[in-house]
């Protein structure tokens, strides 16, 4: 079911693009990722708006009052929160639902890339079975041209330089940096940096780049390329919506610090 509805159409779309761009698999990955992110862009906008509304609610006077008033009565607190949502016209699930819809699409995109990057016999047999014969000709398509720039997209990437004994994992470094930037730029400023969700975000922003960098180092470079493109598109989407939080990466001016601290009080 999952295979027929998501994976197979994605694999065929990816290979169709690959054919369109002159059998350049790297370019096909970039364009396919861009296409999927464009299709899911309206969902992302809804998710951001929903998240922003919930964030602003945290500063609402009524919200703060009921938190304080019913802090020992969870049931009553929930009732009052729901009443406030209705009053302000906020849907608490507005940010979750688009995420839930996007999630299988992103996972499908990732899995279809893995299938298309077949570099061993059984993987290739599996890929052939995903191709719609009416749309694409196996004989013309196989083997896929997995060379892109200096990389074989089916293998982990290393840039070999004549004066160095070992190859440099350029893509893994770029994945680490772009994941770090994405995490920092897309994390909204927290009203209270000591709360649980802010701490969780900070930890994720710190460790996620290394995790993604490690995956890029060990997995096929086609997937690492996808990570980079996906990170850059994510940053671009947030920038277009004016949601980038530059303060997280730019050095804070000395004059800003006390005033911000004061605002929290």
């Amino acid at each position: 079911m999952w295979d027929a509805l998501i994976i197979t159409p994605f694999v065929n779309a990816l290979l169709f693009i690959y054919n369109l761009v002159g059998q350049n698999f790297g370019l096909a990955i970039i364009l396919f990722t861009l296409l999927i992110r464009l299709i899911t862009h309206p969902l992302m906008v809804k998710q951001i708006k929903g998240a922003k509304a919930m964030q602003e609610l945290q500063k609402n006077e009524k919200w703060l009052k009921i938190q304080e008033k019913y802090k020992n009565d969870r049931e009553k607190l929930a009732q009052e929160q729901m009443a406030l949502y209705r009053e302000l016209g906020i849907n608490p699930f507005a940010s979750c639902l688009p995420t839930l819809i996007q999630f299988p699409i992103i996972i499908g995109l990732y899995q279809s890339l893995i299938i298309a990057l077949a570099s061993t016999p059984i993987e290739l047999l599996n890929l052939i079975r995903h191709i719609y014969p009416a749309l694409l000709k196996v004989e013309a398509l196989i083997p896929l041209n997995s060379q892109f720039l200096w990389m074989d997209l089916g293998l982990p990437e290393r840039l070999a330089l004549p004066f160095l004994p070992v190859g440099i994992p350029i893509l893994a470094i770029v994945v680490t940096v772009t994941t770090y930037l994405q995490g920092k730029l897309m994390t909204p400023p927290s009203a209270n940096p000591k709360d649980q969700s802010a701490m969780f975000s900070n930890m994720m922003n710190l460790y996620m780049p290394f995790l993604m960098g490690y995956l890029a180092l060990t997995l096929a470079s086609g997937l690492a390329l996808y990570f980079v493109v996906s990170n850059l598109i994510g940053i671009l989407q947030y920038a277009m919506l004016g949601q980038l939080n530059w303060q997280n990466i730019l050095p804070k001016r000395a004059s800003e610090k006390p005033s911000k601290a004061g605002a929290k009080k």
Partner: peptide
């Protein structure tokens, strides 16, 4: 736990080479 879950999802989806041929 979240990091382990993400790592296994991304790495696991990519499959292993162990059964890549005969």
């Amino acid at each position: 736990a979240s990091m382990v879950l993400i790592a296994s999802l991304l790495g696991g989806c990519a499959g292993t080479l162990a059964s890549s041929s005969w």
